[in-house]
Simulated scan of single mutants.
Amino acid sequence: MHSGLVSVVGRPNVGKSSLVNALVGRKVSIVSHKPQTTRHRIQGVVHRPEGQIVFVDTPGLHLGGKRTLNQVMNDAAVGALADVDVVLFVVEAGRWTDEDAAVLTRLARLQTPVGLVVNKIDRIADKATLLPLLAELSARHPFAFVVPLSAIKRQNLDPLLTELMARMPEGPPLYPEEMVVGYDDAFGLAELIREKLVRNLHQELPYATTVGIESFEQEGRLDRVHAVIWVEREGQKGIVVGEKGEQLRKIGEAARREWERQQGRKLYLKLWCKVRENWSDDMRSLQQFGIGGD
């Protein structure tokens, strides 16, 4: 038996969470087209006959963010590089940015094997350009391996799992066989509500919101939950709630439907929106909301 930890890192919006979800075979991390959706280190587990791989999805390492939240997210991603067996550096096929270069500079200091994942190859119309692209990327660092794939299309995932399993140390499983996520239901539902927020709200407002679970009770096949969406200003609250509460109901209904489909249980969700001034730039508030230190 072999088992080990794999950190998945890269700049925002390269598809790290989509990759972890595809590898695990179910939604582990929330996803959206907006960068910096992932705020925590989130674990998903792949069980195979020969062993177990625990993937650690991380916030996108980014430049320029000045709020405390930005620093906490970067710290979480950097912290996930320690005490793992392999690091996966995910980039977007056909696009290399200053943020990619900054991530690679950090990875160059590691003794841990670093594998390169070139994601979104389905977007490359002329496949003849793929080999020169891979050669160019491979020349940037002595990667342990390079795997081109499409997470969203679930293309070429098995070669990546083979490369990773070959590098997992001998040892017992880190998680029981029935467990595929490394967090509890309350955290999972809070993240799901936040995903619906991010997808329904435009421009910068999603980054001024977070979700807290006030109570989570299970009564047979019913989950009874009270949750709060926190914003930074009174004007933002009006946008989240919407006219006559319509936006808030839409967000809650979308979260409820997906939760019931995922879990096979009914959900009674009571959702509020409250204001805490400048929470994203206040370390105490971030810690109270469970952001940072994970």
Rank of each mutant, 00 (worst) to 15 (best):
L110E: 10
A255T: 11
Q288W: 13
R67G: 01
V225C: 06
G10L: 06
A125H: 12
F143M: 02
G242L: 11
R140Q: 13
G4S: 09
A166N: 14
E234C: 06
L267R: 01
R167M: 09
V103C: 13
E260V: 05
R109I: 03
D83M: 03
L131D: 12
I193W: 07
Q36I: 04
L107Y: 02
L133P: 05
D100K: 04
K196Y: 05
G64V: 03
P172R: 03
V241W: 05
H40I: 07
G44Q: 05
A93T: 08
R284H: 15
G51A: 03
S150P: 02
R233C: 00
F89V: 01
L81W: 05
S29C: 15
V231D: 02
H47S: 06
P142Y: 12
I30D: 02
G212E: 08
A186V: 07
D294H: 08
S138I: 00
V31T: 15
D184K: 09
L205I: 14
V180W: 14
F216W: 11
E195T: 11
P132W: 08
I291Y: 09
H47I: 01
A93H: 11
L149G: 04
R41Q: 13
L157V: 03
S32H: 07
V20W: 02
L110C: 08
V90C: 06
A22C: 11
L107H: 04
E258W: 09
H47K: 03
M283V: 15
K250Q: 14
L110V: 08
L149T: 09
R224Y: 04
L110P: 08
L88A: 06
V103H: 07
Y175K: 09
D281Y: 02
I42G: 04
T38H: 06
A125I: 08
E243M: 12
Q218V: 15
S3M: 05
G290K: 09
E177F: 15
W96E: 08
L81G: 04
P59T: 14
L133G: 07
I30F: 09
Q288N: 14
A125W: 01
E136A: 14
R11F: 03
W230K: 04
G292F: 07
L174H: 10
V231K: 05
L131G: 08
I213N: 00
L61H: 01
V84N: 08
V275E: 13
D158S: 11
Q71W: 07
P12D: 10
V31N: 07
L104H: 02
W279C: 03
F187R: 12
T37W: 05
Y175Q: 06
A186G: 10
H47Y: 03
R261T: 09
P176N: 09
L81T: 03
L19Y: 01
A76K: 10
A102S: 07
L134T: 02
L116C: 00
R106D: 14
R224P: 04
V231G: 01
L81I: 06
G171E: 03
V72Q: 13
S7G: 07
K274F: 15
G188N: 10
